[in-house]
Design a protein around this nucleic acid. Structure first.
Lengths: 342, 342
DNA sequence: CTGAAAGCGCTTACAG
DNA sequence: CTGAAAGCGCTTACAG
């Protein structure tokens, strides 16, 4: 059950464990001929390395932490997929952590990751203050922040230009003639909502007579994907049933969009005639909705890939300057905004 | 940077590291009074445990592996969420592994998990033969199989009654009067497709004059979520454009359903009048599709939760008998089958 | 290029 | 109830 170790391989060949270690880790300082014999013998004995032993000795595990709010959210699922794939290419394990945007949970997971001595962490922070993430700096653990910013940019970061995406979407609504627009937001302490709302405001402020009403709900009331849907639906019902119903609505994320659409349907309203709808985030089936949804899509694959690259680059060069990469979202106009299908 | 260890805590109190270990692991054999002082001192010094050291010593890490084909698939995302949450309650890390249903990848990940000395693994096997999973048995690593079966039931398993779900769905189509039904399948070597197809056949065989045509595509041509969509779309186009177009179609999973719906839309066909559609797997927005999709839903939460329970139970009782839990899917009739909305 | 030896931070018989 | 000591399986100065 407990397999062979370096001792066994070394004994078999009459060499030291140091040599076995060097040969197997591909370090130079071992003659190629000997190295080859070591590899062959290890293979023959069915040797498997012991990551705990290595991590203990090197004070660093071959694993990275991925701290997100919820893998069940398709946005994070895509990111997790990419991150995991890129980490696997480097034979690093990925420790999955779902915080639900809760700082206490975030802290617990970071404790765990520090106990595991991870080589690095990729995190979508729950808040913009450094908070529990300060530990990562204190421990000198390479960290990259994903989709969200931390005040004073203490970490490498890959961000999406949320503001531009939202602005573009709302500006488009204004071009369709809408002047009374609502933004359905799930408030969190994280970057995206804040920036997206700011983007809406910018677009509105650029047009005379345009008005923005904001409908906000506490994300902490909304647990999980299902909860966010329902929050969107509830907020939208409220808004659509109120006086001064807006003629168009901006949904702050993909989950909220679905909730809003459900409310619209329950009320028997037609999109885009009775109310136009646009939202942040795309999904592969959003063109199958009734009607196809116009969105600002985040560059999911690039986001995850860049995060991993930044992380491993930081691991290799602990002292290089902090770098921030900002990726543009892409607006995809379908029918829910009032355009005719393309 | 490198924090305090048991040595530091022990020195501070003038006790042995053995005592510190016992006190902090909550083992009995230490007076409550001393234990409390140890805890306080550890806390005061900012002690953090070192999981690599513990894993090396105990020959077992406090982590479990989760081996699935793709987190980006909403089915697995839900499962991953539940599994991670339940593992976190036990302070176990979850190592995420995406195999893409590829046996070579599966093998690589299992190697990694064995190197990590995980306490257990939850796996959705890529094939029904034991294949790479045999290593888990050899290593004595507690394992539970999820959603899929392995020949001869060598592991604890949580399964869904795929056959019953598919049968029920197709039987329902037959009740609506359909006699020519197509099944759109993504062939894999795994349990679900095979069982779902068998379920379709059972329903068809029970009705005179009913015919089933099977449209199959190689899953290996379809990479990822997007690929599966497209496979579904391609297969459906082929089928809908062929002679003898069926009047109803069964889609073997949620991703395929979406692809089929897209093909139907491209062809300008109306659902359910021109063609009725039902599919395996539900998603929170499937009632927002045009038209709302009738499905057999898997009990996602229960699936993940049961898997974790079985796993930890197995860890606690390595020698108990293998147990298999079969969960029923639930059929949800909406409009795509021809029913009127409920 | 190779080896002897120490040590990473824990846990666990063993002894008292 | 508590401690001294060995050892889990690696890596890495250090010496040659």
């Amino acid at each position: 059950m407990s397999g062979p170790t370096y001792r066994d391989v070394a004994r078999e060949l009459g060499v030291s464990t140091a040599t076995v270690s060097r040969a197997l880790s591909g370090e130079l300082g071992v003659s190629e001929e000997l190295a080859e014999r070591v590899r062959r013998t290890a293979e023959a004995l069915g040797y498997r390395s012991n990551r705990a032993a290595r991590a203990l000795r090197k004070k660093r595990a071959e694993a990275v932490g991925l701290v997100i709010s919820d893998v069940e959210n398709p946005f994070f699922a895509s990111v997790a997929r990419t991150v995991e794939g890129a980490a696997a290419e480097r034979r690093h394990a990925v420790l999955l952590c779902n915080t639900d945007e809760d700082l206490d949970q975030e802290r617990l997971y970071l404790d765990l990751l520090i106990e595991e001595n991870v080589a690095g962490v990729i995190v979508a922070p729950s808040a913009e203050q450094i908070g529990p993430l300060a530990q990562l700096r204190e421990q000198g653990i390479p960290t990259v922040t994903l989709d969200r910013r931390v005040e004073d940019d203490p970490f490498d970061a890959v961000l999406v230009d949320h503001r531009a995406g939202a602005r573009e979407l709302v500006a488009h609504l204004l071009e369709h003639g809408h002047r009374s627009i609502a933004a359905v937001m799930g408030t969190t302490a994280a970057t995206p909502s804040r920036e997206r709302l700011a983007g809406c405001r910018e677009a509105i402020d650029a047009v005379d007579g345009a008005e923005l009403s904001v409908v906000e709900g506490e994300m902490r009331d909304a647990v999980g994907v299902q909860g966010t849907f329902e929050l969107g639906e509830r907020l939208a019902m409220e808004m659509l049933l109120g006086d001064d119903r807006p003629s168009a609505v901006f949904c702050a994320n993909g989950l909220l969009s679905l909730g809003v659409l459900r409310a619209v349907r329950r009320l028997g309203l037609r999109v885009p005639d009775d109310i136009a709808v646009v939202g942040f985030d795309d999904q592969p089936f959003f063109d199958l909705l009734d009607p196809p949804l116009s969105v600002a899509a985040q560059p999911l694959d690039q986001l995850g890939r860049t995060a991993v690259e930044l992380l491993f680059d930081r691991i290799a060069h602990p002292d290089r300057d902090v770098s921030t990469v900002i990726l543009p979202p892409s607006v995809r106009l379908r029918r829910s905004c009032g355009c005719s299908d393309t």
